[in-house]
Design a protein around this nucleic acid. Structure first.
Lengths: 210, 210
DNA sequence: CAAGATCCTGATCGTTTGATTAGGATCGTC
DNA sequence: GACGATCCTAATCAAACGATCAGGATCTTG
């Protein structure tokens, strides 16, 4: 993916850097303002470049969106698989518990994840198609299979897996997605480490017991 | 609020009807496509009227949004208070349990509620200001106070109330907010009555025990 | 049934949008 | 040290946006 200075291909060092800045700005604004609400001019301004540069690096606004979302899910999958690799030989209940914790940590640091999903998946459309089949379905399959094994041993509430999936993906990130509301409503900053920890404790205790 | 044929005020019967159609179309499209994503032309088309008529009934796109959201929260508050009035003399745990159920039923029938909140409250802005202070804060206060009383008696997990609030408001509606995704991902229609019932069972069992 | 208020539409305004164009600046390469 | 590829910008395009305006249709009132 990352086109490094491979043989022959000469890519100026600054190119990749500005590309990354554009992607970060795009992800922030897309997730906060929705696809239509975010303008290419605002994305360019936040990245510190001019607007036509977006069409130089990405052929269209749509492709820019897809590239930004790809980067987000790459980071999520990296965080989850690295966590799992560090837990070889650990019992499956503990692994699941820690993976849910990791998901909550990631959602706290990257609320754009749940924001983008809710923005695109509440309506049928080409972007939902792409998002579900490319990124969400693999996560859904492995998650529900893992939870189903635990449910058979009584380690997890015996409810249909689709419900458990949406309870976890709803209860986990919502506080961080609505961080501005939460700060004003409850006077709590959901980004604070002790608040993230408390939320992970609360959610995992509800799902897996304590 | 509803300007009926009161003394002197002569309102043609069709006026209120089209106003309601406009508000319903606006709520649907605002909640699905976000404030910027929904165009006044599309709202008018869905309501079966021409676009300038929106500016006749509502002075601006912003005021149309506020009127649509007002109607939504009026319906929610009516549903909750009617449920509570029918439970005079019942113990507080059962009341809380049934009010959470009612919230889930409402969220299933009106996913626009959580959609609008997540759209506006993930960024600071004038619409979040208005939404939080006018509609969300009263609900937050009465809900957390009710849950805090139950927590003192051990009827509800002993976690900070802000966390419990965002767990409930996240775990409850998310499945219905992402109904298009859920249909494709899990092959389940979250609108089906038995699915709504199963979800209400699952969430209330997690929060209040069984 | 004339007069006036009410409800609604077709045409059009100035802005802003995503995208294109032509060209300038900066680098590695021969 | 000229050359060509790469990276980036100023100027501009057609399309779509929210809003306005003048006027037509429909009802109520005197």
């Amino acid at each position: 993916m990352a086109q490094m200075a491979a043989a022959g291909r000469t890519v100026r060092p600054s190119a990749d850097a500005t590309r990354e800045r554009i992607l970060a700005a795009a992800l922030d604004l897309f997730s906060e303002l929705s696809f239509d609400g975010a303008t290419t001019r605002e994305i360019a301004a936040r990245a510190g470049v001019t607007q036509p540069l977006l069409n130089y690096h990405f052929s269209s606004k749509d492709e820019l969106w897809r590239a930004a979302v790809d980067g987000l899910f790459e980071a999520l999958n990296r965080a989850l698989s690295e966590r799992e690799l560090g837990l070889r030989g650990v019992d499956e209940l503990t692994v699941a518990r820690l993976l849910v914790r990791e998901f909550i940590y990631f959602s706290a640091a990257n609320p754009q994840l749940h924001r983008v999903i809710t923005q695109e998946c509440k309506t049928d459309g080409p972007r939902m198609d792409w998002l579900v089949e490319r990124h969400i379905r693999p996560l859904y399959e492995t998650t529900t299979e893992r939870l189903a094994r635990l449910a058979r041993n009584g380690h997890v509430p015996d409810i249909p897996m689709a419900h458990l999936y949406y309870i976890i993906t709803g209860a986990g990130p919502t506080m961080f997605v609505l961080a501005p509301e939460c700060r004003r409503l409850a006077g709590i900053d959901p980004q604070a480490p002790e608040v993230v920890e408390a939320h992970a404790d609360a959610v995992t205790a509800l799902i897996f017991g304590r």
